[in-house]
Design a binder for these strands. Sequence first.
DNA 1: GCCCTGAGTTGACAAATGTCAAGGTGAGCC
DNA 2: GGCTCACCTTGACATTTGTCAACTCAGGGC
Lengths: 253, 253
Amino acid sequence: MMDATHPTDCASCPIRDIALCAKCDDGELAKIARIKSTRRFEAGQTIAAQGEGIPLVSSIVDGVAAVSRTLEDGRTQLAGLLFAKDMVGAPGEGQAAYDIVAKTPVTLCCFERHAFEAHVEEMPHLASRLAELALDERDAARAYLFLLGRKTAREKIASFLLFLIERQRQMAGSEAPGIIRLPVSRDEIGSLLGLALETVSRHLNGLGRDGILQILDHRRLRILDRAALERSSGDAPAPMTPRELQVIPRKSA
Amino acid sequence: MMDATHPTDCASCPIRDIALCAKCDDGELAKIARIKSTRRFEAGQTIAAQGEGIPLVSSIVDGVAAVSRTLEDGRTQLAGLLFAKDMVGAPGEGQAAYDIVAKTPVTLCCFERHAFEAHVEEMPHLASRLAELALDERDAARAYLFLLGRKTAREKIASFLLFLIERQRQMAGSEAPGIIRLPVSRDEIGSLLGLALETVSRHLNGLGRDGILQILDHRRLRILDRAALERSSGDAPAPMTPRELQVIPRKSA
DNA sequence: GCCCTGAGTTGACAAATGTCAAGGTGAGCC
DNA sequence: GGCTCACCTTGACATTTGTCAACTCAGGGC
């Protein structure tokens, strides 16, 4: 289920400044480094399973994972993606609330749960950083909810692409500018957006036909017209006519 | 924008055991009580506005609020509901990420931000409780995402009702058992579920015609057949035929 | 090379949902 | 009482999207 442990150096850690340890000074860092290990998962491997206890607290150093749920009949429903700095098991979580599955090769920075929780209680830096990260993830989940509200399939897909662009920009240098790497299949994009995989395929190709993007291969797109993509997302930088205060109508069926 | 300040007693606080202060001992409680105040908002009032700084850190003591976003043209999109114990401004949040609007009368327990943040740094109980609450809210937002994935309108509505039942059960005694109070209009339910208000109305009445529930008035329902409601929610306690591992198909158009 | 598999694409059709429009109901107010 | 207004309901119709099915394409193993 998981690869060997690779101890690594915090000084060269790509998420040193944004991870749980971001506020720790060198002394504190040395303390938690003692209970630290690095783990690697290949695409497709389950990092944490719903209902199982997680003996580790960890953050994603590199790669993309999905928050998912497996139904009794074996089918899978996705509810979001996790990127560098996102936490996988958190202190105080008795057991995982859902599955976390690697969608690309994922590197995790892990701490032994029990020891980590003890450190949290004595290092205010760590506790408050933990709270900040948890609030960030809450806000990310909410932002994702806004991405899905009352939109057409095309708008959802455009929004999703913009979301990926934003995420990939944050962890800079991953790809040539203007290129999006899709970490998931058409079917999984459908699961993330509540659409059928055929609908995803059609609208992705539709955006291509409209000259907004170019499909390089199944997992890579080139954005040709970012402004048009934004207009397609339905996230109204808005018509100029101020209408009465009302709830957003879904753009169509 | 907000009512007068009403100092109240923590000993009789309905969220004493689940709020930010849950882990605080009497001494710590006394400390933070000094910077505490209670505020009340009427239904419809904006508690926090997107982009504005929030000078207070607070938790909902009673009532229901919505996480929402206002588009440039004045229309509103909802992305979730907030109940007792949920936080409204959190420590470390420079400014609100979205609007928070009261949907019923809401009572908040508020702390002056700057002083509260200082307390967080020196009280590990407070910091770790804050992190727990933030993680809870992250998980609630994710659970809500699962509620929306690849479902028909009827399934979404049934799931939403079950979600409300669960929330109302937690803050016990609010209503006779089997009665659901809807904190929002049909239009707002539509915004929460990504549906047209007419679709919400039709399926709500459809559930009524099927004997699953009874519409008492626009804001109150009686659940007549909880098991059938669960079956209608699409959250598969599942057909017994184990199928191949695949992504959940949307149940229909 | 060949076959097999998984993923993606495309088309035809059906069904669910959105849109438009008309009408109903209840609360508050004069 | 009888307004008005907001909210809800209901119907008819248009459109999007899902479903089913066939086909293509690329990769891996033998």
